[in-house]
Design a protein around this nucleic acid. Structure first.
Lengths: 112, 112
DNA sequence: TCTTATACATTTGTTTCTTATGTATTGGAC
DNA sequence: GTCCAATACATAAGAAACAAATGTATAAGA
């Protein structure tokens, strides 16, 4: 787990990128995928995720689709056209930011 | 300029790293150096910087030293032994975080 | 039957920053 | 010699983004 300050400001970018890669996902699924992909280093809390998803939906960035698994509701989110655009922008902004920080902090990286 | 969320949580790390590289610096100098090194992409505001410096001083991370340039006060900050340790920790935590995010966002980087 | 996992959601509080404001000195342009 | 920009400190009020806690309900497995 990273000190909580670090993760701040990255949630939106993470969500948008995951949705760009997986077409449609539901909230709980997003938290589990991030947890798994990062080896528990990043854990998205529900108190942060759901308000963010609702806000992005209200802005027209995300589209929802309800599905029932038995009696249990599942709310799928996917990217609108604006969302696809924003996803790319956010990811490339973050990539740029990382390069800037790498230079500022004089960090050497390995080739991806 | 990056969207303001991104920079959140990195201020402490930036300050500690700059002080590790430059022995002693004063507040205004830090804002100018970050501005210059990042080509105006990151601008540290005084409202964020000074409280952070004061807090780090109160924690024993930073040591201060007053100097007078004519009649004008200049307050130099430098790392205490604890500060040197913390600086390394924060930078390597951030490097680790960048690798995690790079993987999560599927970002390719160039060799440093 | 009881606990854990799944799945949604909101509320309250904290941290961290932004914006605005304030004081004072110094240097350069005009 | 006056005015503006830069230098240099600082604080206060508010916003943003998140963490922690709490709540509801279904489903699966021991």
């Amino acid at each position: 787990m990273y000190s909580s300050e670090l993760i701040k400001g990255t949630l939106k970018t993470i969500v948008l990128k995951l949705l760009a890669e997986h077409k449609k996902m539901y909230g709980y699924e997003i938290t589990q995928m991030v947890k798994e992909m990062t080896g528990d280093k990043i854990q998205i809390t529900e108190g942060a995720l759901y308000p963010t998803l609702h806000a992005l939906e209200a802005e027209g960035i995300l589209i929802t689709e309800i599905e029932y698994i038995g009696k249990r509701v599942r709310k799928y989110y996917s990217l609108s056209p604006d969302g696809k655009k924003l996803s790319k922008e956010k990811v490339s902004e973050f990539a740029d930011f990382m390069n800037t920080m790498k230079f500022l902090l004089d960090i050497k990286t390995k080739q991806a």
